[in-house]
Simulated scan of single mutants.
Amino acid sequence: MKDKFWYQIKSNFNLKSILLIILLLIPAYNFALNNNNKCDRFHVGTFIYESKVGKIIIVRREKEEIDYREYPNHYIRQSVKWISSCTAEKKTLEMNDPILSPDSINKSLNSITYLHILETFPDGYFYKTMSLMGETDSYGKVQLYKGSL
């Protein structure tokens, strides 16, 4: 009788433990899934951020991004390849901005940087960019652009 009692308690405990673990894993999985999907909203669109040289407008398409300092004349055009939902590889294809020296333009052409979306908000995201060597280039906040081009 005593053995049967302990067996019943062990069975109930194991069943409750398994159920508790499942109930704890579902919200964690859901959070991870939703957090990644939040980055997908920023793969395409028009955004704006403040830089050392003023406001920069980003026009991002599926595979290309153009960052305008003064629309439409001063820009940097880059290819964009999304490695994961929140990380993109960007390659500089063309630069047309008189504040950039010819040396910095030549050095930057064909260079690869990585955009990491660190946190998302309803109106934008925090990001960091890193060079191919793993050096952090910049941090900042990008917001949805509501104006017209």
Rank of each mutant, 00 (worst) to 15 (best):
P98F: 15
Y145H: 15
F126W: 03
F31Y: 09
L25A: 14
K16H: 11
K128H: 07
Q78I: 10
C39K: 01
R77G: 04
E119P: 02
K141V: 10
S148I: 15
K141S: 04
Y139E: 07
I56W: 01
K2T: 08
V80E: 00
Y71T: 06
I22E: 04
G147C: 14
Y75W: 06
Y68W: 11
L100H: 01
L15F: 12
P72C: 07
K4D: 08
M130G: 03
R77F: 03
Y68Q: 07
K146V: 14
K107V: 10
I76L: 03
I105W: 00
N30V: 07
E65N: 12
K63T: 09
S79H: 05
I48V: 14
D40R: 05
Y139D: 14
S148N: 14
Q143C: 05
P122M: 07
I22W: 09
I83W: 01
K52W: 03
Q78K: 12
V53D: 13
D123M: 04
S108M: 12
F42P: 05
Q8N: 13
E135V: 10
E50R: 14
L23K: 07
F13D: 09
L23D: 06
K63F: 05
W6M: 06
L23I: 13
E70A: 12
F47I: 09
K4I: 08
S85R: 04
N12E: 05
A28E: 06
P122L: 08
D137G: 13
K128R: 11
C39F: 00
G124D: 03
K90P: 00
K107T: 11
F126C: 08
K81D: 02
F31P: 00
L149R: 15
L144G: 11
G45W: 01
G45H: 03
L93P: 06
N110K: 14
N36G: 04
E70R: 13
T136W: 02
R69N: 08
T92M: 04
S51Y: 05
L100C: 02
Y145Q: 12
M130C: 07
V142I: 07
K4E: 06
E94M: 11
M133S: 11
R69H: 08
L100P: 00
R77Y: 04
L100A: 04
N106F: 02
K63E: 08
G54M: 08
I105H: 00
R60M: 11
G54T: 09
